[in-house]
C-alpha cells in the first residue's frame, strides 16, 4: 500500500518534470527539470530493490552528465529559445515519433500484463551489485568490450577535433615565442660582441 503511494508520487513527479523539460524555453530550466526526472527515476529504482542502478543513475546522469550540461549553459550564458518560425514540418515529424513511442510503451505494458508473475529470488535480482558485475564480465563480456572501445573512440575523436581547431593558433603562439627568443638572443650576442 505505502509502496504504491510512493511509486505514484515519484512517477507523477517524474512526468511533471518531463513535461516541464519540454515546454520551458529557457535551457537552464529544462536542464534542472531533467535532473528532477533522473532523481525521481533513481528513487523508483530504489523502491524496486535495485540500489546499484539507482546509485549509478544519480552518480552518472544527475551528478556528472547534467552538471556538464548546466556548466555549458552557464558558460555560454544562453538566452530563451526563440519560437520556431522555419522548419515547421518538424512538429509533424516529432508528433509521429511521439505517437510511435507511446504505442511502444502501451505494447510493453500489454506484454507485461500478459506474462505470468513469478516469485523473485532476492539472490538473483538484477539490482544486486555482485550479480551485475558477474554478468557483465562473464556472460556479456563482448558487448561491454565493444561499448568500451566505442567510448574510447568518442574520446579520441573529441580530442582530435579540438586539436585540429587549435593547431594553427598553437603554432602561431609557438612561432611568436621562438621569434622573441631569437631576437633576444641576437641582442645578447650583439651586446657581447660590443
Amino acid at each position: 500500500m505505502a509502496s504504491t503511494i510512493i511509486f505514484y508520487l515519484l512517477a507523477g513527479f517524474a512526468i511533471a518534470c518531463a513535461i516541464s523539460l519540454v515546454i520551458h524555453r529557457n535551457p537552464l530550466y529544462s536542464a534542472i527539470s531533467l535532473v528532477g526526472v533522473f532523481l525521481s527515476l533513481s528513487c523508483i529504482y530504489f523502491t524496486l530493490a535495485a540500489p546499484f542502478i539507482a546509485a549509478v543513475q544519480v552518480l552518472i546522469y544527475a551528478g556528472a552528465i547534467m552538471v556538464l550540461v548546466v556548466f555549458v549553459i552557464l558558460l555560454l550564458n544562453l538566452d530563451d529559445d526563440k519560437p520556431l518560425t522555419r522548419l515547421r514540418y518538424l512538429y509533424a515529424v516529432a508528433g509521429g515519433l511521439g505517437l510511435a513511442l507511446l504505442a511502444q510503451t502501451l505494447f510493453i505494458f500489454y506484454a507485461v500484463m500478459r506474462t505470468p508473475q513469478e516469485e523473485i529470488n532476492t539472490e538473483q535480482t538484477v539490482g544486486n551489485t555482485l550479480s551485475i558485475g558477474r554478468a557483465m564480465y562473464t556472460e556479456y563480456l563482448l558487448p561491454v568490450e565493444i561499448v568500451g572501445v566505442m567510448l574510447l573512440m568518442a574520446i579520441v575523436g573529441a580530442v582530435v577535433l579540438v586539436r585540429k581547431l587549435n593547431q594553427p593558433q598553437l603554432e602561431l603562439v609557438v612561432e611568436e615565442e621562438l621569434e622573441l627568443r631569437h631576437e633576444k638572443e641576437e641582442k645578447d650576442d650583439y651586446r657581447i660582441a660590443f
Partner: peptide, 22 residues
C-alpha cells in the same frame, strides 16, 4: 544500510554542486 553506500554518498555529494552553480 544499503548495498551501495559508497556510490550513494559520492552521487549525492556530486548533486550538491547544482546548489552552488544555480
Amino acid at each position: 544500510q544499503i548495498d551501495v553506500g559508497v556510490l550513494f554518498v559520492l552521487g549525492i555529494t556530486s548533486v550538491g554542486v547544482y546548489g552552488i552553480a544555480l
